[in-house]
Simulated scan of single mutants.
Amino acid sequence: MTIRRISGLTALTLLAACSTLNDVPTARLGTATLKLASGVPVGTAQFLVRKDRVSINVALAGLSEGSRGLHLHAVGQCTGPDFTSAGPHLNPGGHQHGTDNPAGSHLGDLPNVVLNQLGAGTVVAELRGTRAEVEQALFDSDGSAIVIHAAADDYRTDPSGNSGKRVACGVIQRP
């Protein structure tokens, strides 16, 4: 699947997520192209502003079927084959991992993406914090990345939800 098709899928996802004209994004804060260690692109991420909130819209294709952990990572580097250069999860508030963790979650925690039998899937989620807080965290001195993991996130186990190795990564860029 080409980037053009993936971008089209992203556009359709964005429109479907808007239930009224008031939900239409007013600005794009950032973008990322997610790639495998081989350099093959498998998806896009868009960071969109609606009022003072930021949402992430991810469209993926070309991966195997199943549920995968999806996280924001603290360093804007995606060096393969293991993408450990992206650092730990993005966690400016120093929280523990997981939306089901009684101690709270961190900014890098995102919902799992469920990929269908064709290896395609989408996720739309609102990020914690105001636009200014999210922008500061995403674009600090070393940037940030978005990472797809091999397994589903259990939403509670610190530090990564038992989501396994990193299989795809994208550096978050300003538009």
Results as ranks from 00 to 15, higher is better:
Val58Lys: 04
Ile148Val: 14
Leu48Cys: 03
Asp153Asn: 12
Leu138Cys: 09
Ala37Arg: 02
Val167Arg: 01
Thr31Arg: 14
Asn162Cys: 05
Gly43Val: 02
Val123Gln: 14
Asn91Tyr: 13
Ala17Gln: 03
Val171Arg: 00
Ala150Thr: 01
Val114Gln: 07
Cys169Met: 09
Arg4Lys: 10
Asn91Pro: 05
Asp140Lys: 13
Gly94Tyr: 13
Lys51His: 10
Leu63Asp: 04
Ala16Val: 06
Val24Gln: 12
Lys51Val: 07
Asp140Phe: 15
His97Thr: 15
Ser144Phe: 06
Ala152Pro: 13
Gly62Leu: 04
Ala16Ile: 08
Ala11Pro: 02
Gly66Cys: 09
Pro41Trp: 04
Gly39Arg: 07
Ile172Gln: 06
Ser67Glu: 12
Gly119Arg: 04
Cys169Gln: 03
Gly93Gln: 14
Ala120Met: 02
Arg68Ile: 00
Pro25Phe: 09
Asn101Trp: 09
Val167Asp: 00
Pro92Ser: 08
Val114Leu: 11
Gln46Met: 07
Ala103Val: 04
Leu90Gly: 11
Gly80Pro: 06
Leu14Thr: 07
Gly30Arg: 06
Ala32Phe: 06
Cys18Ile: 01
His73Ser: 03
Thr99Ile: 14
Val24Asp: 05
Asn101Pro: 12
His73Met: 06
Gly43Leu: 11
Val114Arg: 07
His149Ile: 00
Ala11Gln: 14
Ala17Leu: 08
His106Ile: 08
Thr10Cys: 06
Lys51Leu: 01
Ser67Ala: 14
Ile148His: 04
Gln77Ile: 00
Leu29Trp: 08
Gln117His: 13
Asp109Gln: 11
Gly104Leu: 12
Val114Cys: 02
Ser163Asp: 02
Val49Ala: 06
Gly93Trp: 15
Arg128Trp: 09
Asn57Ile: 03
Gln173Trp: 13
Asp100Cys: 15
Asn22Asp: 12
Ser7Glu: 13
Phe47Glu: 01
Asn57Cys: 07
Ser64Glu: 03
Asp142Lys: 03
Leu48Val: 00
Gly108Phe: 08
Gly121Asn: 03
Asp100Val: 10
Arg28Gly: 11
Thr79Tyr: 00
Ser55Met: 15
Gly98Lys: 12
Arg128Ile: 14
Pro88Asn: 10
Leu21Asp: 14
Gly98Glu: 12
Asp142Trp: 10
Val147Ala: 07
Gly62Asp: 01
Asp109Glu: 08
